[in-house]
Amino acid sequence: MLKDITLGQYFPGDTLVHRLDPRTKLVMTILYIVVLFLAKGPISYLAVFLFLAISIGVSRIRLKTILSGLKPILILILITAILNLLYNRGETVLLRFWRITITLEGVFTALTMALRIVMLIAGTLLLTYTTSPLQLTDGLEQLLNPLKKIHVPVHELSMMMSIALRFIPTLIEETDKIMNAQKARGAEFDTGNLIQKAKAMLPLLVPLFISAFRRADELATAMESRCYHGGEGRTKLKVLTMERRDWITLIVGLLMLALVIALRRLGL
C-alpha cells in the first residue's frame, strides 16, 4: 500500500527523454512552466499541450501512470476551478440563482486554470519519471555551480538532497515493516477517534525515529571512512556532457517560448 505512492518515482527507460542530460531536462521544465503561464489564448494552450503530449509520447511513460500521479491534486484542481467559476465577474451571464452568478468568462477561466494545473503537474511528473534522483541532483548541482562564488554551499545542499531522496523509499519500506510488525501484535492504525489514532501512531513513530537516527549515524560513519570531506576537489563518476540532442532540445524549447510570446502579442 505505502509502496504505491508514485510521487517522484523514477521509471527506468532508454528513450530520448531518458537519455537527455538532466540539466537540459531541468531547464526545459522551467521553460515549460514559464511558457505555460505565458499562454493566454486557446491556440497557445493547444501548442503547449501538443508539446507536452509529444514529450510524454516519446518518453513511453504510460498515460495511466501520469494520470495516477495527478490523482493526489484532484481536489486542488476542483477547488481552483469552482472558485474561479463562482468569483469571476464576466459580461455574458449563463446562469443566475440565489446569489450565485455563472458567466461564460467564468467557465472559460475555470477551465483554463484547471488545465494549467493539470499540465503543470503532468510536465513536472515527466521530469521525475524519466530522471533518476541522482541524475536530478547532479544536474541541479551543476546548474547552481555559479552560486558558489557568492558562498552558497551548493555541493552540500545537493548532497543533502540526494541523501534525502535516496532515503524516502527506505523509510517507506521501514514504515511498512514496523506497521506490519505492530499489526501482528494487534495494533490498529485506522480505527477509533482522533486521539486514539494519534496514540496508535506511537508504536510506529518511536521505532521509526530510532531507526532513522541509527541510519544517519551509520551513513555518516560510512561516508567518513571513505574519506568524504565535502565537495572540494571531488570528481564525478559520471561526468555530465551536453550532446547534440541536448542543444537541439534546448533550441526547441526556446522556439516554443518565442512562439508563445508571439501568440500572446497577437492575443491568441
Binding site: 510488525a181 501482528a184 494487534g186 521505532p207 531507526s211
Partner: peptide, 20 residues
C-alpha cells in the same frame, strides 16, 4: 482478522526494531 492475528503470532526479522 483481529482474532487471527492473536492466534497466529508472527515474529518478523530483526524484531528488536519494533520495540518502543
Amino acid at each position: 482478522i483481529r482474532q487471527v492475528r492473536s492466534r497466529v503470532g508472527l515474529v518478523f526479522q530483526y524484531p528488536e526494531y519494533q520495540l518502543f
